[in-house]
C-alpha cells in the first residue's frame, strides 16, 4: 500500500507540473504549444521547424501516458482499452476537415466514410466504458 501511495503522490506531483505547464502555455504569447512553436520558428529565423516542437509534445505525451497507464488498476484494464479506443477516435478531426471541404469530390467521400466509422467508435466506446464502469461496486457494508 505504501508503494501505491508513493506512486499516487508522484502522479499528483506530475499532474501539478502538467497544470503549471498548461498555465505557462496559456500565458505565453501565441496561446498554445503549437503556436508557441510557430513563434519560436519565426524568432529563430525559421531555423527550427515546428515539427520539432510537435515532436517534443509527442515524446512528452508518451511519458505522461507511461506513468498514467501504470497507475491504472489491473481490474480496470478492459475499460482502459475501451476508453483508449474511444479517445483515439479523435482522428475524427481529420474526417471533419475532409467532409467540410465538400467541393473536393473524392476526399469528401473518404471523409464521410471515416466520419461514420469513428462516430461508431466515439459513441460506442464511451458508452460501453460507462456501462462497464457502472458495474464496479464496493462491498455493501
Amino acid at each position: 500500500m505504501d508503494e501505491l501511495q508513493k506512486a499516487l503522490d508522484q502522479l499528483d506531483q506530475a499532474g501539478a507540473a502538467v497544470r503549471l505547464a498548461v498555465q505557462d502555455l496559456a500565458n505565453a504569447p501565441g496561446g498554445a504549444a503549437d503556436a508557441a512553436g510557430a513563434a519560436a520558428h519565426t524568432l529563430s529565423g525559421g531555423a527550427i521547424d515546428p515539427f520539432v516542437f510537435r515532436f517534443a509534445i509527442f515524446v512528452l505525451a508518451i511519458f505522461v501516458g507511461y506513468y498514467v497507464v501504470w497507475s491504472v488498476t489491473p481490474a480496470l484494464h478492459t475499460p482502459l482499452m475501451a476508453v483508449t479506443n474511444a479517445i483515439s477516435s479523435v482522428i475524427v478531426v481529420g474526417a471533419l476537415l475532409a467532409v467540410g471541404a465538400s467541393a473536393a469530390g473524392a476526399a469528401t467521400g473518404f471523409g464521410f466514410v471515416a466520419l461514420c466509422l469513428v462516430s461508431v467508435n466515439i459513441f460506442g466506446g464511451f458508452l460501453v466504458t460507462q456501462r462497464m464502469l457502472a458495474m464496479y461496486k464496493k462491498k455493501e457494508k
Binding site: 498554445a32 503549437d34 505525451a61 505522461v64 497507464v69 479517445i87 483515439s88 478531426v93 481529420g94
Partner: peptide
C-alpha cells in the same frame, strides 16, 4: 493537430 498527437502518444503507450 495537438489533440491527435497527444492522444496517439497516450493510446500508443497504453
Amino acid at each position: 493537430n495537438l489533440a491527435l498527437i497527444i492522444t496517439g502518444a497516450l493510446v500508443g503507450s497504453s
